[in-house]
C-alpha cells in the first residue's frame, strides 16, 4: 500500500491537486480573485504544475531529465506564488491599521532578508542527497523556500498576536493551510537534503507530504467555502468607574 505507484500514491498525488484547482476556479467565479488574486493564481497554477509533474512521472516516454525540468519549473512558479500569497495576506490583515502598517512592512522586509540569508547559509552547508545536481538542487531549493516561507508565516502570527489583532476568516484559513504544509515539508526536506535517508523512508516521507497537502487543501476548502459561525458580536462595555474622576479626566484632556 505504502509504495510508489500504488493506488493510494496515485490518489494522494492527483486528488488534492484536482480539488485545489477546483477550489481556485470556484473562488475565481465567486469574484475572490479581486480580494486574493495571488491565492487564486496559486490554487490554479500550482495544481497545474503538480499535475504536469505527475504526468511526467507516469509517462514512460518522458526521460528523468525532462521530469526534473518539469518539476523545477513547477517548483519555481509555486514558490514565487506562495510569497505573493503571504504578502497578500499581510496587506489584508495589517493595512487597515495605519499606526502599525509601516512598522509591519519594515519588520517583514527585515525578517524576509534575514531568512533569505539564513536559508542561503543553510543551503551552503547542506551536503546534498544525490549525485545528480538537478535532484539535490531541487531538494535544496525546497528546503530554502520552506525556511523563508515558514519564517515569514511564524512572524506574521507572532506580530498579529502581539498586537491582539483578529484575523478575518479567509486570511486565517489561507495562512493555517500554508503554515501546516510548510512545517511538514520543511522537516521532511531538511531530513532528505541533510540526512540521506533510505529509499523506503523517502517513499514514506513522500506519502506523508502528499497526505499533509491533502489535509491543507481540506483546510482551505473549510475556511474559504464554509461560512463562519454567524455570531452577533456583543457590545463589550468598558469598565465602569467614578463619574467625578471621569469628568476631571475629561476636563484635563480638553484643557490640553
Amino acid at each position: 500500500m505504502l509504495q510508489a505507484h500504488s493506488i493510494l500514491w496515485h490518489y494522494l498525488w492527483v486528488a488534492p491537486d484536482l480539488l485545489f484547482m477546483l477550489l481556485g476556479f470556484f473562488l475565481w467565479r465567486r469574484g475572490m480573485g479581486r480580494i486574493f488574486p495571488a491565492f487564486v493564481a496559486f490554487a490554479i497554477l500550482s495544481s497545474v504544475g503538480d499535475l504536469a509533474a505527475y504526468l511526467a512521472d507516469i509517462t514512460p516516454s518522458v526521460s528523468p531529465a525532462n521530469f526534473w525540468r518539469v518539476f523545477w519549473a513547477g517548483l519555481v512558479v509555486e514558490s514565487l506564488l506562495k510569497f505573493l500569497v503571504i504578502g497578500e495576506v499581510f496587506s489584508q490583515v495589517f493595512a487597515p491599521y495605519a499606526s502599525i502598517a509601516r512598522l509591519g512592512k519594515k519588520l517583514v522586509s527585515g525578517c524576509g532578508t534575514l531568512l533569505v540569508l539564513l536559508a542561503a547559509v543553510m543551503a551552503a552547508f547542506s551536503r546534498g542527497d544525490s549525485k545528480f545536481g538537478v535532484v539535490s538542487g531541487a531538494h535544496l531549493l525546497e528546503q530554502t523556500v520552506f525556511i523563508i516561507e515558514l519564517g515569514l508565516i511564524v512572524f506574521l502570527f507572532l506580530f498579529a498576536a502581539y498586537f491582539h489583532l483578529s484575523w478575518d476568516r479567509l486570511s486565517f484559513g489561507i495562512m493555517i493551510g500554508l503554515g501546516v504544509s510548510a512545517c511538514e515539508h520543511l522537516a521532511v526536506w531538511a531530513i532528505i537534503a541533510n540526512a540521506s535517508p533510505s529509499e523506503h523512508v523517502r517513499t514514506l516521507f513522500s506519502f506523508l507530504g502528499m497526505a499533509t497537502y491533502h489535509l491543507c487543501v481540506f483546510i482551505w476548502f473549510y475556511y474559504l467555502l464554509v461560512p463562519g459561525k454567524a455570531t452577533v458580536k456583543p457590545k463589550i462595555s468598558l469598565p465602569e468607574n467614578n463619574l467625578a474622576v471621569w469628568n476631571r479626566e475629561l476636563e484635563r484632556l480638553l484643557q490640553q
Binding site: I147, F157, C183, A187
Partner: peptide, 11 residues
C-alpha cells in the same frame, strides 16, 4: 529544521 518546524506547528 525539524525542531523549528515542530515549534512552528505548535504555535
Amino acid at each position: 529544521f525539524v525542531v523549528f518546524a515542530v515549534l512552528a506547528l505548535v504555535l
